[in-house]
Amino acid sequence: MTCITCPIGCSLSIEREDGGSLVVTGNRCPRGAAYAREELLSPKRTVTATVRARTVVKAAEGGGGAELPRRVPCRTLSAFPRERVGELLSLLYGIELELPVERGKILVKDALGTGIDVIVTRSIA
């Protein structure tokens, strides 16, 4: 298994000891060991997506294309259960967000009852 918690990408091995506990080797930091256990038992992913911005396109004629983006980026504040990512994306794609918006604003609190929030990741004035 390749660790993905940081760019180093350690090659991890997991073995079950006689006592039944999992032993991770190849990791350079504790996050690697935690990742390996979690990836095996309940894989999680940080989900990044965009939601629709309710925009009035600013008069852009000759203005250097200074119109606003049509999508606002967002992400889960922590890793999200992998098997429910599809459900979460459907939820997010149904959202329309009023501008302006500040980075860090909580877009969805306790998404799908996971206790994980989804935040806006870009301020758009």
């Binding site: 993905i4 940081c6 760019p7 990408g9």
Partner: peptide, 12 residues
């Protein structure tokens, strides 16, 4: 590309 992207973006 980076290993983690192979894992997260293709394998998944």
């Amino acid at each position: 590309g980076l290993t983690r992207n192979i894992v997260q973006c293709l394998h998944d």
